[in-house]
């Protein structure tokens, strides 16, 4: 159980590449999830009632089942319905779908949290629906949703680790592989935990910074 510095350095390129995959999956998966989630939320709120009900089912299905089972279904079950994806694509698609369900609920809670009076006030001064969305609803929601969005995005990073189980070449898989090769699981996973921890702390620090910057937009006390 000794630390061999040279050994670690020789792994560094592999580890960094795997870290890159993790971060890429995280950023792209979250961004797509936020976007698709927004579309779902808007469709459910402003679309016809049937659409709202039609979208409710998949969202609740995703939120009610484990991410791992969803990934298995997509990656191993997909080929049976003509959906053969390589592990990285399956991982990204799975992450996006999973994230979209949760993000859509956050967006919806944001829509619901904006006082009707603010929207009525916008209409009274002559803003149309699109302008109201762009100038009033979205800016107000940004402030309201920032903390929960940051939380969800942190969750997304942690979920990327699960993709190692379908052998997406991300960080957890790379470290497990090294652990198997050198029988150094504990050291490997301990360092791995520290890396995730650092990423999560960095992300929440950024969230807190953004919250501070936006704090002047906080709702006035009534």
């Amino acid at each position: 159980m000794t630390f061999d510095l040279d050994l670690i350095i020789s792994f560094l390129p592999d580890i960094l590449r795997a870290l890159g995959v993790t971060i890429l999956l995280w950023i792209v998966g979250s961004a797509l999830g936020i976007l698709v989630g927004f579309v779902i939320a808007v469709l459910r709120r402003y679309g016809p009632r049937g659409l709202d009900l039609a979208l409710l089912a998949p969202v609740e299905l995703i939120r009610g089942t484990p991410f791992l089972v969803q990934i298995f279904l997509l990656y191993y079950g997909g080929p049976f319905i003509g959906l053969s994806l390589d592990s990285v694509t399956a991982g990204l698609v799975g992450l996006t779908i999973y994230g979209a369900a949760y993000y859509s609920e956050l967006w919806r809670s944001g829509f619901n949290a904006i006082p009707r009076g603010h929207i009525e006030a916008a209409q009274c001064v002559g803003l149309n629906r699109r302008q109201t969305l762009k100038r009033i609803i979205l800016p107000e929601m940004t402030m309201l949703l920032l903390p929960s969005m940051v939380n969800m995005t942190i969750l997304m990073l942690k979920e990327t680790a699960i993709l190692s189980i379908i052998s997406v070449p991300e960080l957890t898989l790379a470290v497990s592989a090294l652990g198997t090769k050198y029988y150094a699981f504990v050291e490997g996973f301990a360092i791995l935990a520290l890396v995730y921890w650092a990423l999560v702390e960095a992300c929440s620090a950024m969230g807190r910074y953004a919250e501070r910057r936006l704090s002047k937009y906080r709702f006035a006390a009534t």
């Binding site: 990073l157 942690k158 699960i162 497990s176 652990g179 504990v186 996973f189 935990a193």
Partner: peptide, 16 residues
């Protein structure tokens, strides 16, 4: 720490 790391990694770490 326990909120900042994936449960999967925690499980693997504890398991080994």
């Amino acid at each position: 720490f326990f909120r900042g790391t994936p449960l999967l990694v925690q499980l693997l770490l504890i398991y080994y």
